[in-house]
Write a protein that binds this DNA or RNA. Structure first.
Length: 439
RNA sequence: CGGGGCGUGGCGCAGCCUGGUAGCGCGCGUGUUUUGGGUACACGAGGCCGCCGGUUCGAGUCCGGCCGCCCCGACCA
């Protein structure tokens, strides 16, 4: 990575003082103002350098936690053939949300909204025996759903980055294990992202099936009403650090996650709700969804493997989505204040911002440059010849977890002011002490 | 898809009703000034007024059509 690009004076991070009029909700406004994205068409966004770093950070955590439960990463194309979707019957079933295209030969194509058919087809061609099961595969790829009404910025865009995983098991019992592994992976993922996500029983929607959970981040501006047991608010995740191959641990964890009451509108049960001792209500944003759907695709598409007794059996499948680009907006909804974004450490575009309050001052420049070198590209150096207030405001807006303020007042004595964005706490420290504090 | 609204320099907006050579604030450039929470002054650059057509001597303004975007609702990772 070219370190020059991390100097604000040389970066394309166009912060805005005023909010473009198209943005209503706070995350959308802040994403535009912090220079993370630019809209290029309704529901379609370009990810500018800082936004792209956040997106990659989230994707990387998702990736690591998928790998950790033994899922294999791959990459499937965005463009798919209509014929493939006809094999499952979904080409006609999907409706106008699907973006349909034609190539120069008038062949019917589509921009994929999901990949069940494609992966089922690939597995059908390659997996022939129960000995090759189970399989869990995922990719992180752009999807397109032609929403009637895109809104909320990247949270409800038409083009979006999604992690979608697919599991193939010999039987129902195996599929349940795969499903529980994914739930484990999801809880670990959201925990690492620094956010509380609650698994809620869900309708399986157009994808079909009967074992399904949504993962909801609590945020005042969320789009759906949720009811949940207060037990989720201080749930202990220390027990999630077990080997994903342990069936007993998977069951224990699954039970822990799904026993306390939690439901969205569509599944809310007032009778069951009455039994909850510590009730909590709020708004939430759906950031993940997992499904078990049995033979919904393996049957119509003719996916079969040889079982232990030699008979051909249709594998049981599940699919598992995380809205990676939606998470960027959702995290901002969860972590912001009047001044701007307050990124969780794990996803922040930069770990720290270095605010040189007096560019050209020997001591300020020297300390700033050495700090900048120390962070090796993971700090944004505000080396603009601007007023201090401009830098403070932009740093707060962009939401770097740490701000290292290098001003003439302290620089002569070798000290800097360290500000923690999340709490607002400020400390005057030596350069070494500040770096030690940031870790 | 029903209902509502908006398209005027990069951003936020006025001008349109009542047609007469396009304006304000921010941002940007230059200079002076200021120097720890968006400093002040001066000068300056930047606009087929969304597009097409019509009415008119003349259209940002009036009329028609189209396109784009936003908001509310029904629907979704």
């Amino acid at each position: 990575m070219d370190p020059i690009a991390m100097r604000l004076s040389r970066s394309l991070i166009p912060t805005l003082k005023e909010t473009p009029s198209e943005a209503q909700i706070v995350s959308h406004r802040l994403m535009l103002r912090a220079g993370l994205v630019r809209q290029t068409a309704s529901g379609i966004y370009a990810w500018l350098p800082a936004g792209w770093r956040v997106l990659q950070n989230i994707a990387q955590i998702v990736r690591e936690e998928q790998d950790r439960i033994g899922a294999q990463e791959m990459l499937m194309p965005t463009i798919q053939s209509a014929d493939l979707w006809r094999t499952s019957g979904r080409y006609d079933a999907y409706g106008p949300e699907m973006l349909r295209l034609k190539d120069r030969h008038e062949r019917e194509l589509l921009y994929g909204p999901t990949n069940e058919e494609m992966l089922t087809d690939i597995v059908r061609q390659t997996i022939k025996s129960y000995r090759e099961l189970p399989q869990a595969l995922y990719h992180i790829q752009w999807k397109f759903r032609d929403e009637v009404r895109p809104r909320f910025g990247v949270m409800r865009g038409r083009e979006f980055l999604m992690k979608d995983a697919y599991s193939f098991d010999l039987d129902y019992a195996g599929a349940v294990l795969s499903y529980r592994k994914m739930m484990l992976s999801y809880m670990r993922t959201f925990q690492r992202l620094g956010v509380k996500a609650i698994p809620m029983e869900a309708d399986s929607g157009p994808i079909g099936g009967n074992l399904s959970h949504e993962f909801i981040i609590l945020a005042a501006t969320g789009e759906s009403q949720v009811w949940y047991d207060a037990a989720f608010e201080d749930m202990d995740f220390s027990g999630s650090n077990f080997a994903h191959t342990s069936e007993a641990d998977l069951e224990r964890f699954f039970t822990q996650m799904t026993t306390p009451y939690a439901a969205t509108d569509e599944k809310h049960d007032s009778a069951a709700w009455e039994q909850v001792a510590n009730k909590r209500e709020g708004r939430g944003i759906e950031v993940g969804h997992i499904f078990y759907f049995g033979n919904k695709y393996s049957d119509p598409m003719g996916l079969k493997v040889a079982g232990p007794d030699g008979a051909q059996v249709a594998p049981h499948m599940g699919s598992y989505g995380i809205g990676v680009s939606r998470l960027v907006g959702a995290l901002i909804e969860a972590f912001h204040d009047e001044a701007g974004i307050k990124w969780p450490d794990a996803v922040a575009p930069f770990k720290a911002a270095i605010l040189n309050l007096k560019v050209g001052d020997i001591a300020c420049d020297r300390i700033s440059e050495s700090l900048y070198a120390h962070f090796a590209g993971n700090a944004l150096y505000d080396d603009r010849e601007d007023r201090a207030g401009v830098k403070f405001n932009d740093a707060d807006l962009m939401g770097h977890p740490w701000q290292i303020v290098v001003g003439p007042r302290g620089a002569a004595a070798g000290t800097v002011e360290l500000k923690r964005r999340a709490t607002g706490e400020k400390q005057e420290l030596s350069v070494e002490a500040a770096l030690a504090r940031i870790g």
